[in-house]
Write a protein that binds this DNA or RNA. Structure first.
Lengths: 134, 134
DNA sequence: CCCTTTATTTAGACTTAGTTTAAATTTAGA
DNA sequence: TCTAAATTTAAACTAAGTCTAAATAAAGGG
């Protein structure tokens, strides 16, 4: 029985996710590793991201687009994406407990997790009369 | 300027999505077309799904797994997925308005859309002492 | 109606994101 | 040190979806 914990590769990847504020994709992470002059195999990046997710050290997010994004903020929170510029911000406001209880009553499920994605236009895009996606 | 509306292929696909209660994927839809003895090109299924989504006739859902799912119920609603058996149900309970206003205040966004995914264990899985994902 | 233009469908090549495989390497611990 | 288990690696592979260019269908003006 071994309890290796963080290998060098996993640590590198955890550090990148922890220091990022933009919820990077696997491919973003590969780019940043290259910028640091590190070479980590493609599959190792994916394996490590799964390992870190399973260990509860990071979270996998499926937001817009095809590629999963990763987030090292583990406090309970949700996300909001700007339909105009694409930035993703954190939503820290807690989900109303009585609303969750209402949903459990309606559906018969016992809820264990919530993945909430809000979309809208961020303050910057609203002020800079950017008429993109509105 | 032409306003063709529904071609034969698009109508076939809309009917499949409308009659389904299981949020089918593109590949599910291709299977069901084959079962009906219809042949619609692969790319046409994707093109049609996008067209129908753009026209507001169906909704694209990104739930668990890699493939998008499609839903013809257009009333404002959300989804809940059972972590034990994988079934997906609709959540009709409305999002508390004051909570949304709170999030707008916190983030500075003006919210235009919500994609909320709840996870939990459905009533059936709980009673049939299925210990899978708990 | 016929002709031209525009939209749609089609097959198949291609892309992107991620998984699998099997060998090589590393690590842990007896 | 030696062995067994875990991890990393490169490369092949898979799944989901997009793109391209040609073929077909439909619309509208004359």
């Amino acid at each position: 029985m071994s309890r290796i914990g963080l290998t060098a590769q996993r640590k590198l990847i955890l550090d990148i996710v922890s220091e990022a504020s933009d919820h990077p994709t696997a491919s973003d992470i590969i780019d940043r590793l290259k910028l640091q002059g590190q070479t980590v195999a493609y599959a190792t990046v994916y394996n490590s991201l799964r390992y870190l997710t399973d260990q509860g050290l990071i979270r996998e997010l499926k937001l817009e687009g095809d590629a999963s994004r990763y987030d090292a903020r583990m406090e309970d929170h949700q996300h909001i994406v700007c339909t105009s510029c694409g930035r993703v911000d954190e939503v820290m406001t807690e989900i109303p407990k009585d609303w969750l209880r209402q949903i459990e009553a309606e559906t018969g499920y016992s809820i264990t997790e919530e993945q909430l994605l809000f979309k809208g236009v961020c303050a910057e895009c609203r002020t800079s009369n950017n008429k993109a996606v509105q």
